[in-house]
Amino acid sequence: MVVLTAQTAAVNTFQALVMGLVFAALGLGFNIVYRVSKSINLAHPTLVLLAAYTALVVSTRLGAGMAVAVAAAAAVGAAAGAALEVLIARPLRGRPPIALIAATLGAYYVFKALAKMIAGDMWTTASLPLPTFTARFGPVVVDASDLLALGLAGGLVAAVAALHRYTRLGVAMRAVAEDPYGAAAYGLPVRMLTMLSWAIAGAAGGVAAVALAAKTGVEPSLEVYVIEALAASLLAGLDSIAGIVLGGLVLGLVYQYSNFLLGTILPGFGEAAAFTLMLFVLLVKPYGIFGTERIERV
């Protein structure tokens, strides 16, 4: 039987915070795509998987440093995101959102196959080669994986928020997301900005993939965490970054504590708890806690 003491509470809360930020970072990709294309990108989970194996191969097989691995994962993610826009989202524009959701489900399997190809004989469970490093803050031990995950996930969320808020490019992307037709009338390059949004969502998936892999290792079913992050995004209503961070943190807490308290009795309960939470949110608040109610235009 596990007991919750001040010490274990501190350790678990810290880990929940780390995982929460990772979940938020994984959810960003859904958020960006949803805003610009009003649809859920079901290929995002395996896009993350693909980027994680890219980082693994680049850092172990090619022996490159972690910075190079992150850049490679981001580049692969960006390319995959842009490809989704050009090959799927653009031709399906003006169709009901469900058409795009179904098409991204097809891409889910394509990315999974690509991940397996890139992984080659590394298509197993593996850890990223991280430096051994630990620091102690009272009862909380922080190691390299925590620092990498915190830095990447936190930095990513802050960077995307700042892009949308403080740069002309980001504001123009928001304008296109709100009203592509009006944006075209005012001369905004709508196609380019839409593709760029998907590419940024993919790059965010790539960076988040390394943050996730730092904590959980890389495994062929890594995409499950991203599907959980979709829970965080739905919890937030998919259209607010602040909400996604809060949703991610809540999910991190649920995940960490259900594993800690019930993991020995009910192994794998962390995932179940996360999905139950997602189901509950969708039943109670179909537009999410912070989401604005939208009419789905067909």
């Binding site: 304008a175 944006a183 905004l188």
Partner: peptide, 11 residues
């Protein structure tokens, strides 16, 4: 202000 920024981006 952001409306103006967005359109300014294009021009």
């Amino acid at each position: 202000e952001e409306n103006i920024e967005a359109v300014s981006y294009a021009w």
